[in-house]
């Protein structure tokens, strides 16, 4: 074989192969080269962002107040962790910063799911659950929402049966779920917490839409060390582009997520911005009210 100058071509060189789950043809991601930017002439209501112009006035002021050195320095996330923990009324050790709730979900898979482990998730749900199941070689079991007159409905008895009989390593439950917008009743959530605690399954509750849906299970972490809550600042806080969120759980559980975190889990701009933005929770709640009013108007 004639190779181009400088190239190494040798039939004896074995092909480069990733981990077995990554070799699967079924693992396909959206085209990362030919995506087209959205038109600025249109109103963007396709990705569940918060484009409230009143909230943008606040975020623009916060952005303008940042020290320019945030661009040339590595992050120190300690002060933000402590401030965020205080705002969420948890201990700082119960929290790890992540790249949105997606980062919390991925870290949970990375820390707890080995090849062949069973993972239960709803269908349809956030697109990355089935993707992470494939990436980490999990045996994914989907619980499909049923179509009813009042909208999609989850068969909670089926979910509980799967927990009790399949003893999954991980149960993924966004609350509210997306794209369905459905929530789990308090009593059913408690049944799931008990069932997963008994089987030693991690229950990952994604509260990405908090406080659009103001109920939270963060207060139950002290009773359930198997509970991890994912949060993001992309929705209500209008910070989708910042890619910052967190995972909250018992100190012992979150320690595992800290063990696998990158050297810098989030960037300095995000850390500095959020630290200041946390002082504007009232503005965020007002924005949530404006968006809920708009929803009712529609």
């Amino acid at each position: 074989m004639k190779a181009a100058e400088g190239a190494i071509v040798d039939a004896r060189i074995p092909p480069i192969l990733p981990r077995i789950p990554i070799q699967s043809d079924k693992l396909v991601r959206p085209d990362w080269v030919s995506s087209k930017p959205r038109s600025s002439r249109l109103l963007w209501l396709d990705k569940n962002e918060n484009l409230d112009s009143e909230l943008q006035k606040v975020t623009q002021r916060v952005l303008a107040s940042l020290d320019p050195t945030v661009l040339c320095t590595y992050p120190d996330s300690g002060p933000l962790c402590r401030k965020l923990a205080k705002a969420m009324t948890v201990d700082p050790e119960m929290l790890v910063l992540t790249a949105g709730s997606d980062g919390a979900i991925r870290s949970t898979f990375e820390a707890f799911v080995a090849e062949g482990d069973t993972v239960v998730h709803t269908v349809p749900t956030f697109a990355m659950y089935p993707v992470y199941c494939q990436i980490f070689g999990a045996n994914a079991i989907g619980v499909e929402y049923q179509r009813t007159e009042s909208g999609p409905q989850l068969d909670i008895e089926r979910l509980l049966w799967l927990v009790e009989n399949k003893k999954p390593k991980l149960v993924c439950l966004p609350n509210p779920d997306s794209p369905t917008g459905t929530t789990i009743a308090d009593r059913d959530m408690e049944r799931l917490l008990v069932a997963t605690a008994v089987t030693g399954s991690i229950l990952l509750v994604d509260e990405a839409y908090y406080p659009f849906y103001p109920k939270s299970v963060v207060g139950l972490i002290k009773y359930y060390p198997n509970l991890i809550v994912a949060r993001t600042f992309a929705k209500a806080w209008g910070l989708a582009g910042l890619r910052i969120g967190c995972a909250v759980g018992s100190k012992e559980t979150i320690l595992f997520l800290h063990k696998i975190r990158p050297m810098y889990e989030v960037n300095t701009v995000a850390v500095a911005f959020l630290e200041k933005m946390l002082d504007h929770e009232v503005d965020v709640l007002e924005s949530v009210n404006r968006l809920n009013e708009g929803k009712r108007y529609f």
């Binding site: 209501l45 409230d52 499909e144 179509r147 999609p152 404006r290 968006l291 529609f298």
Partner: peptide, 15 residues
């Protein structure tokens, strides 16, 4: 998905 077939989705925005 069958449970949402026929529905369109809009992100919330202001009135």
């Amino acid at each position: 998905d069958a449970c949402l077939a026929g529905y369109s989705r809009f992100s919330s925005t202001t009135t």
